[in-house]
Simulated assay, not measured.
Amino acid sequence: MLLELVDVEVAYGAVTALRGVRLTVDNGEIVTLLGANGAGKTTTLRTISGLLRPRAGQVLLDGEPLSKIPAHQLIRRGVAHSPEGRRIFPAMSVRENLLMGAFHDRKHVAEDLERVFALFPRLKERVSQAGGTLSGGEQQMLAIGRAIMSRPRLLLLDEPSMGLAPLVVQTIFEVIAQINATGVAVLLVEQNAAQALKIANRGYVLETGQVVLEGPAGELLADDRVRQAYLGEDVGPPESPAAPPVQVGEKIL
């Protein structure tokens, strides 16, 4: 098991943001995390990458607790985080932004730059251009490219399609699949549930800081609750107001 969260609880002061969250990501998987705004998705990623510390529970990487490891050292352990909102350096060039992702290891910079440019040819065309002058889609490409410059084993992606045109969204998801095909595990927070579940192996649904549903991506994509809440489909009223506990695959909630 590459990543495991065990009963993780995170609070902002008196407000509890995550309650007993349990999830796993295995080597080579794409796992998506779905939920409404404020459900705790970004908090989950920030806790994994060390930007937040859990009040209770554990975050384990290769079975080792990460609670005492500073966030910047997690990059050396193979964890890279592409945050919501891209957070590129607007005054720095595309090349300089990408080099920031390789700050801990300069041995393979030329090779890694070419890898990023192969995934995102548009970045190569704009290599000397300031990051802040790029389009929204190009900035998202730059944010993902910067993350993979660190040669991660686990890539955390927070809302990579937010605010992008449909054609650009398609490109982003194709690249995520290509990155995963090289053996990089991906934990994907994404508002476009349909696209996320199409490329994911498994998924989790968060509501008010708790995992309320989990299972194989195909089963979640077909689940009426997911279709109605996250795909915008009208699936009609439930068969019974007193529904049994949620069951997806072998998981009973």
Rank of each mutant, 00 (worst) to 15 (best):
E114I: 11
A56P: 00
G40C: 10
L74F: 04
P83S: 10
G236D: 04
A56I: 01
L2G: 05
Q58W: 00
D26K: 15
L34T: 11
D223C: 05
G85F: 04
A200F: 03
V169M: 05
R146S: 07
A130Y: 10
I252N: 04
F103Q: 06
N192P: 12
A130F: 13
I252T: 13
N37V: 00
E96R: 14
I75L: 14
R53C: 04
L142S: 12
G163D: 06
P54W: 05
G183Y: 08
V59S: 07
R151S: 12
N201R: 11
Y204D: 04
E138W: 01
G13M: 12
F89H: 11
V15M: 09
I30T: 08
P244G: 06
F120T: 03
D105E: 02
D62V: 01
R86V: 11
I176Y: 14
L119R: 06
V109H: 05
L66G: 01
L123T: 10
G209P: 06
P90A: 05
M92V: 13
E207M: 00
M100P: 09
Q191S: 08
L157F: 14
G28A: 09
T43G: 06
P65W: 01
R115H: 14
A242F: 15
E96P: 12
D224L: 14
S93V: 13
A91Y: 15
T43Q: 05
G218H: 11
G38E: 04
G236R: 05
I199G: 04
Q170T: 12
E125L: 00
E239F: 15
L2E: 05
